[in-house]
Design a protein around this nucleic acid. Structure first.
Lengths: 346, 346
DNA sequence: CCTGTCATGAGGTACGTGCCTCATGACCTA
DNA sequence: TAGGTCATGAGGCACGTACCTCATGACAGG
């Protein structure tokens, strides 16, 4: 009776397939020296027994740990800093889980630096790379090269469609832009709305802009959209951009779909507009939290960096350990867009 | 040089402490037969080497899997159904992770049934119990008894403070109520606000009510609060309660802090009030999703059942595997309150 | 027939921990 | 001093998989 509840092991698979343990091992780990016909028998046995590689035993037996490398933009961007903090937190919590986590800062907005870092990854010491993608052809090629070397690439926050990245972890940025517009429209009966972005070279920023303008034009046609101005996710540059916007005709609202919110708040404060202009921003950081509390910011859309890191690590683990050939990888829960007002600040 | 990077093992701890492997094992697994002085030496060695039990090896070596039992209310409650769905999903995804997950339905609003189920848990087959607590003295006692038997108890969604539960996984329900009030106040300039609850025997419902009324009274004193009416998280009873509310003087808004939203929407529809009355509800379900789309509901506060199950499993794993005596358990990220409008529906 | 290549089998060790048995002293009590 | 309890040591097996070596038989081309 117990046999019915016991999980199948490689031995069971070998017996069921009528082959030796060595052959099962060759199939499971993609080693050469197995005829297609034989491999098919093994695959059948795996399916019929619903065999899953025992993750604990597998990790224990393999010499080296699973290693995941994060390539995260550097700079003053507070959101990226919180991503880094989340990585550190998880690395600490996962001590003893046979997972070695490395975070490497990459010069922001620099496709060449990102590509070079990806190209430099050694499959011997890296099972999976998690990157915040800058959309550029060289990056796409670097991802393809890494995949060929056997490194699974996962995009985080900003996706790189059309590449060989295995997965994207992040929010639906078009939906985020649409939500921002929906809120902005309800908060401002009418008027001019200023739009700030980090860089339109980032897909996530382009997608937010697309969603925002689509909903504004369709549902709130009376509003005039100004921008987008690029602040390159930098506080100083963002402050300058906002100051310039405030120098023009009066604004009813500002949507900052990038970072640099400390600069935004500073500019509003200096201009005496805090609380008078409706502000929708992205990412819960010290700056946006203070903005919400003081009333300078009305709503913050957040993508939960900690959850994103957890999800990225989970999919990385899945790629490195899973028998993706035999069982469909379970879809991780999508990252949801968090909305924060003053009252539900974490 | 490699030695510097290698993780410490029990052998290293034994050598460092100047004791045998057997003694280290006794200390690590809380077995008797070790003088306090000796145990202290071992603990020192563990700290100085930053030793962490290798989770993979540990799970592999122990005969049985980690077993987690969920005790979840039954009935027509759509949120509880989504909790159950999330449990099934995770159980499927964690095949091969040496984790056996059992979900047992418990008669809702019935402290006696919950206590009995907790008392019936056998520490031989259950490492951790995850319960949606009903606040009652018998439940508190059952939790205490389970803890004594060596079963770690985790509360989910609704907490049980003052008990020996090891952890609470869920949102800050007072903050949820405050957020609901803040939104309701901005949406309705003035008027009567009806309040619906599931049962005031549930701590989460009481806390939401407390947060809601506190903010309404402090920040929107012009509004009159009606209720709360209890709908016992049931569609029919909730519909009846709403119908009764709608029979009175006109309402500006309704806050349903419990379940039974299908009944709420039905009552609004029959009364011709869909879209005219501002409605704030809890939990993303088919009913509330449809309500958002149709305009019957304005905002939904959600607590992300999938994330809660994942968090509960993570803390359960931590309790069963962790050297809580030697390393502080890393605080899992709190569950955040999700806000959903029509435009950011997942 | 010889030699080489290839698919496969047989069998072993290692990973780090849990858990078991047995032996050995030290110390206490009657 | 004999018998008992107790703290500790020594050693070994098991868990399921990864990865290694070596042997064997089949089959091909020359």
């Amino acid at each position: 009776m117990d046999d019915l509840k016991r999980r199948a092991t490689v031995h069971d698979v070998a017996r069921e397939a009528g082959v030796s343990l060595a052959t099962v091992d060759r199939v499971l780990n993609g080693r050469p020296g197995v005829r297609g016909e034989t491999a098919e028998k093994v695959a059948d046995a795996i399916r019929s027994l619903d065999f899953r590689r025992d993750v604990s035993a597998s990790l224990l037996a393999r010499a080296r740990d699973l290693s995941v490398t994060f390539l995260i933009p550097d700079g003053s961007n507070a959101f990226m800093a919180s991503l880094n903090a989340a990585i550190t937190r998880h690395a600490q919590a996962l001590k003893g889980e046979r997972l070695s986590i490395v975070a490497r800062p990459i010069h922001a907005f620099d496709p060449a630096a990102l590509s070079a870092a990806i190209m430099a990854l050694d499959p011997k010491t890296t099972d999976c790379a998690v990157i915040v993608a800058t959309e550029h052809e060289t990056v796409r090629r670097a991802v393809e090269a890494a995949s060929k070397r056997g490194i699974a690439v996962v995009t985080l926050v900003s996706d790189l469609p059309g590449s060989t990245r295995r997965h994207f972890v992040g929010i639906d940025n078009v939906a985020a832009g649409r939500t921002a517009a929906s809120l902005m429209g309800r908060f401002c009966p009418e008027g001019r709305i200023g739009i700030l972005a980090g860089s339109l070279g980032l897909r996530d920023h382009r997608e937010r802009l697309e969603g925002f303008t689509a909903v504004m034009e369709a549902e709130f046609p009376g509003h005039e959209l100004i921008g987008p101005r690029e602040g390159f996710d930098d506080d100083m540059l963002t402050e300058a951009a906002v100051t310039e916007l405030l120098g023009g005709p009066p604004l009813a609202g500002i949507y900052n779909l990038g970072a640099g919110n400390a600069g935004l708040i500073a500019a509003l404060g200096k201009h005496g507009d805090s609380g008078r202009i409706r502000v929708v921003a992205h990412e819960l950081t010290d700056a946006t939290r203070n903005g919400l509390r003081s009333g300078a910011i009305d709503v913050v859309l957040d993508q939960n960096p900690d959850g994103e890191i957890a999800a990225a690590l989970a999919v990385a683990r899945g790629f490195a350990m899973g028998d993706s050939a035999h069982h469909p990888a379970p879809q991780p829960a999508p990252i949801e867009i968090g909305l924060f007002l003053r009252d539900n600040l974490r």
